[in-house]
Nucleic acid binder design. Structure first.
Length: 818
RNA sequence: GGGCACGUAGCUCAGCGGGAGAGCACUACCUUGACAUGGUAGGGGUCACAGGUUCGAUCCCUGUCGUGCCCACCA
């Protein structure tokens, strides 16, 4: 795409790019404020943004922060435009290192230089040698004769010439290499540009190239190369040098070569006149803002990256030689004088004020051209030419936080929403966008555009490489969504987004979370089938049933966990917390324990349980909505939410903690789990119902057992529950929350296996005690460890000792039964 | 060359000064009426290696080895 391209051709090209790049071009157009109506093949520029861009340009120009300069840029010879660093891809290339011999004037000797780009030798204006280079420094001050050209070039002393690299002597081509450009500046070397905008040799009418070069046969032969592509020319030049015996040697050399992201062409450092923003000046307030904590990065390690870049920031080239974009608001008069203004009228006014001596204007006696639009248009077309270049898309993007809010107008939106709250973005965009938004925001709004920048993980491919549209290694989210659903994908990304680490997307993980969505769906269906409907009279603070008080307690706790994690930008923790709560608490225990009530006879308990289940499900939908917006919204709708779930208030539960309920249901869960575990271990068939004896149970335990007997019977496959002072002989004995639960099964269980099991438990208890006692027996530990840690260890010891006694007792009884 | 991460269960990854965790995979059992995209139970790890700090190190520090990324260089 060049600016000569017509509209039709442009549209065709955009379509092609859209296909080639997978849509990267769309991002570019969006950053320009262009909206695309594909069906009508129309592009419209946002007028408000255009105005803002012009205003910003003019103000920065008047403040001396925008200027025009002739220096090197990254040039894409295929697109014929300057491009930004963002659009440059480094590609490893197996190339060669050519060692060239430059004759020294007045001797038969040579200085040998090495290059990977021999064609640039035509633009050489010096050879540099390190002043401390023992081997070569005697050559400093001599003059070399550039082969094929005849230019006399000085051998200068410069520390840039590393004695260890290449031949130790470096050819200096200030117009075609960023480092050489700096060397050239230091030694006041001429700039000889030997390429045209398309990367072809430009020699015949090239004054800089021919300056001071004597006419010779060799030069004539070189001029024949004019117009050749740089790579073709490279070959020819090498051939000629070889023929002249000036090719010392060729070394194989692998190095990375910058390629244009969009064109795929090799990028040339190219000498052109471009517009620049002096980024260094506005960078300082941005650095200060981050240092002062007015903008923080999450995770904070990215601050270092931000500082590193901001402190080494280079002038920002903002002009582009393409024709879609915001045209640079600079008009040139007949003598090249620049008039920068927000629109043409202003530019004309400025120009008229300046060109008071131009006769055609002043000659009109008594006619005030400044008040005559027709004459102004004539003047503009006759005498002024607007800059053909457009602005880098990141220039307008940098204004995003305030231009979208109506700036430069003093709109209510601007007052309300600037500064914004959080910027969420990828690390690769910190430099290009975040930094620029900060610079512009601080400059024009006098305030940071956002107090927090959350740098999210990058989704990489299975090889850990960054996915990119141009590289073509993207996992197409649409395909993943087709297979597992958008909720499953979104949840997976959130669950894997641990701070500071990238994501290698795994289909299995997505599948697991699809199953989670299904689980939720089924749980909701179960609730619906059992008449669990939202009840406005239900007050979670005054539930009567222990089970309901328990799930309310657990819900409040899960809610706090999820909220805290979200507020800390720990999305993986939030996702895992809600996952665990829904599956392992609500589905696995609450619904299972509620089944007898929900399917039992009507009554107060049933009504309350229905309401509590519905209340909990509501809380779940709200907590899960950020991660699974679609399924939760749908379930919310099905259960009769009258507004959208996305608009519902986030659940913040106070005063719902209920340790008593937790103790009771926790005991039930532990008891059932222990029995199940031992049954599986002892290989007891599920059809076998075991009697359960609670030995030496406290009054509280007896009470609980009576309340929960039906549940324990059903979920642990227990026949009936009875009480005794001691476990009956020959029974399996389990320690549950400090008390013994016995399954008297003489003859059913394998006594040897049971003894082995108890031995294992005993060993574990003893190991626990041993570890704790070692600590508690250490005087230094008691002296130096914090008190609560020591106290915790004491509690652990007491618990383990009690457990050991119970197990020893169980073993003794087992022996008695044999 | 400079910088930043990371080496924890077979795999993908959490945790990060005081009892090794999840998901998937694996093993055994379960056609119980929300769910087999399910249930129950289980096996599996000297938390890369070597030093150091500490009463105590998977966690902090140093070094080594390995891996990844960014920046620069690439004559």
């Amino acid at each position: 795409g060049s600016r000569e391209m017509g509209r039709e051709a442009f549209i065709e090209r955009v379509w092609q790019w859209k296909a080639e790049s997978g849509g990267a071009i769309i991002g570019q157009l969006k950053r320009l404020g262009a909206s695309c109506d594909w069906s009508r093949e129309r592009f419209t520029m946002d007028e408000g943004l255009s105005r803002a861009v012009m205003k910003v340009f003019v103000e920065l120009y008047r403040g001396g922060l925008i200027y025009k300069d002739k220096r090197l840029v990254n040039w894409d010879p295929k697109l014929k435009t300057a491009i930004s660093d963002l659009e440059v891809q480094q590609v490893e290339v197996r190339g060669s290192l050519w060692h060239l011999k430059y004759p020294l004037e007045g001797t038969d000797e040579f200085v040998v230089v090495a290059t990977t780009r021999p064609e640039t030798m035509l633009g050489d204006t010096a050879v540099a040698i390190h002043p401390q280079n023992e081997r070569l420094r005697h050559l400093i001050g001599e003059t070399a004769i550039l082969p094929l050209v005849g230019r006399r070039i000085p051998i200068v002393a410069d520390e840039y010439a590393d004695p260890e690299k290449g031949t130790g002597a470096v050819k200096i081509t200030p117009a075609h290499d960023f480092n050489d450009f700096e060397v050239g500046r230091r030694h006041d070397l001429p700039l000889v540009n030997v390429l045209d905008v398309e990367g072809r040799l430009d020699l015949t009418d090239n004054a800089a190239f021919l300056d001071g070069v004597p006419v010779s046969a060799a030069l004539e032969e070189t001029l024949v190369l004019h117009g050749l592509d740089r790579f073709v020319a490279r070959k020819k030049i090498v051939e000629r040098l070889e023929a002249l015996g000036l090719l010392d040697k060729i070394e194989p050399n692998t190095h990375s070569v910058p390629h244009g992201d969009r064109s795929g062409a090799v990028i040339e450092p190219y000498l052109t006149d471009q517009w620049y923003v002096d980024a260094k000046t506005p960078a300082q307030p941005a650095i200060d803002a981050v240092r002062a904590g007015r903008t923080v990065f999450v995770p904070e390690q990215w601050q270092a990256t931000f500082f590193d870049w901001m402190e080494h920031i280079q002038p920002w080239c903002i002009s582009r030689q393409i024709w879609w974009g915001h045209r640079i608001p600079a008009w040139y008069g007949p003598d090249g004088k620049v008039f920068v203004a927000e629109d043409e009228d202003d530019a004309v006014a400025d120009a008229l004020a300046h060109y008071t001596e131009i006769e055609e204007i002043t000659a009109e006696e008594g006619h005030d051209i400044a008040a005559d639009p027709a004459r102004q248009a004539w003047f503009a077309s006759e005498y002024l030419h607007r800059d053909d270049d457009v602005l880098d898309t990141w220039f307008s993007s940098a204004l995003w936080p305030f231009s979208t809010l109506g700036w430069p107008g003093e709109t209510p939106e601007l007052k309300r929403f600037y500064p914004t709250s959080v910027l969420v973005t990828g690390f690769d965009i910190i430099f290009f966008w975040v930094a620029r938004m900060m610079m512009m925001g601080l400059h024009f709004m006098k305030e940071v555009p956002f107090p927090t920048v959350y740098i999210h993980a990058l989704v990489r491919d299975e090889r850990g490489q960054k996915m990119s549209k141009s590289k073509g290694n993207v996992i197409d989210p649409l395909e993943v969504i087709d297979e597992y659903g958008a909720d499953a994908l979104r949840f997976t990304l959130a669950a894997m987004a641990a701070q500071g680490r990238d994501i290698k997307l795994s289909a299995q993980r997505v599948e697991g979370n699809r199953n989670f969505a299904t689980k939720l769906w089924n749980a909701a269906r179960f609730a619906e089938l059992n008449g669990c409907a939202r009840n406005p009279d239900f007050d979670p603070h005054h539930a009567g049933e222990v089970l309901n008080r328990w799930i309310i307690h657990e819900t409040a706790q899960a809610g706090r966990e999820v909220t805290a994690a979200l507020e800390a930008f720990k999305f993986n923790e939030a996702a895992n917390a809600v996952y665990r709560f829904v599956w392992n608490v609500f589905c696995d225990w609450y619904l299972e324990l509620a089944k007898p009530v929900l399917t039992g006879p009507d009554g107060a308990a049933k009504n309350e349980t229905r309401a509590a289940a519905a209340w909990t499900l509501d809380a779940i939908l709200k907590l899960l909505h950020p991660f699974m917006p679609f399924v939760t919204e749908e379930l919310w709708n099905v259960t009769g939410g009258d507004e959208l779930l996305v608009l519902a208030a986030w659940p913040l539960h106070d005063g719902l903690d209920d340790p008593a309920a937790e103790a009771e249901i926790g005991w039930v869960i532990d008891l059932i789990t222990a029995i199940r575990s031992v049954r599986a271990e002892m290989n007891i068939a599920p059809v076998t119902l075991l009697p359960l004896v609670l030995a030496g149970a406290s009054a509280e335990t007896r009470e609980r057992a009576r309340r929960w007997s039906a549940y324990v019977q059903r979920l642990a496959r227990v026949a009936d529950i009875s009480f005794a002072d001691a476990a009956p002989p020959g029974s399996m004995q389990l320690v549950v929350r400090g008390e013994v639960a016995a399954l008297p099964l003489k003859g059913v269980i394998d006594l040897a296996a049971e003894r082995a099991r108890l031995d294992k438990e005993m060993a574990k208890a003893e190991a626990d005690i041993g570890r704790v006692e070692q600590k508690l027996g250490n005087a230094d530990f008691l002296k130096r460890a914090p008190e609560d840690v020591v106290e915790g260890e004491r509690e652990k010891r007491a618990e383990a000792q009690a457990r050991k006694i119970k197990i020893a007792d169980a073993l003794k009884r087992l022996e008695g039964a044999v």
